[in-house]
């Protein structure tokens, strides 16, 4: 018990900071680029905008290809390019890069789905009013899909939190790393339980806050 508390005192905060760092960097990058790619997928598949079946299919294929890799395998594949990029991949930054690469196509599909769910009639009315694509995206597509986009961000964060534990197994740190190193390898069940409790609380909080935010934008 005392040992457990000692371990937690020593490592918990820094692990949480690492996890927070990795997940937030990956979320920001994933949502940013994912939204752009998702928008591209939507617009190249829509008769009122830039219907380009070839471009749409090629980008769709790339997105699917990355998504079809289990994260652990993607991580292994990415070790080489990440090493070129930052020398030591076994750091929180290395983990953040790997998570970002996974997050982009993940969120791209969520964003594409959110845009596709926008009432076709509303888009039609906007086109009929003579609005250009930029205006329609800004004033129709984004506001109408915002609640779904926010729920998608919540889903992404929670998935990334799960993936970040795997990043931990290759030594990039974070709260998952803590649970594996001490809870599993050193039979410190107390540490394992503490990590589980913390994860459950974090996920609940994110879900709660995300739902509130999403509902705020539903009028």
């Amino acid at each position: 018990m005392e040992e457990t508390i000692e371990i937690l005192q020593q490592y918990l905060l820094s692990s949480l900071v690492d996890t927070f760092y990795m997940v937030s960097v990956a979320t920001v990058i994933g949502v940013l680029f994912g939204t752009i790619i998702g928008l591209g997928l939507f617009l190249t598949n829509h008769e009122y905008f830039y219907k380009q079946p070839l471009i749409n299919q090629i980008s769709g294929f790339i997105v699917n290809a990355i998504r079809s890799l289990p994260f652990l395998i993607l991580l292994v594949v990415l070790l080489v390019p990440i090493t070129w990029l930052i020398k030591d991949p076994y750091t929180p930054t290395g983990g953040a890069i790997a998570l970002s690469i996974a997050a982009i196509p993940f969120y791209a599909r969520i964003a594409e789905g959110a845009f596709s769910e926008v009432n076709a009639g509303v888009i039609e009315a906007a086109v009929a009013a003579g609005g250009n694509t930029a205006l329609i995206v800004k004033d129709v597509l984004i506001p109408e899909s915002l609640p779904a986009l926010i729920r998608g961000v919540v889903l992404t964060i929670i998935s990334l939190l799960g993936y970040s534990a795997m990043v931990g197994t290759i030594g990039a740190g974070g709260i998952g790393d803590l649970a594996i190193q001490f809870g599993y390898n050193r039979y410190e069940t107390g540490v394992l339980i503490a990590v589980i409790v913390i994860l459950v609380i974090i996920v609940q909080l994110i879900q709660w806050a995300g739902d509130r935010l999403a509902n705020h934008f539903v009028k």
């Binding site: 009639g121 509303v122 039609e124 009315a125 906007a126 109408e144 009028k219």
Partner: peptide
């Protein structure tokens, strides 16, 4: 079906 932007005033 009117087709108004629902999340806008």
């Amino acid at each position: 079906h009117f087709n108004l932007i629902e999340n806008r005033t």
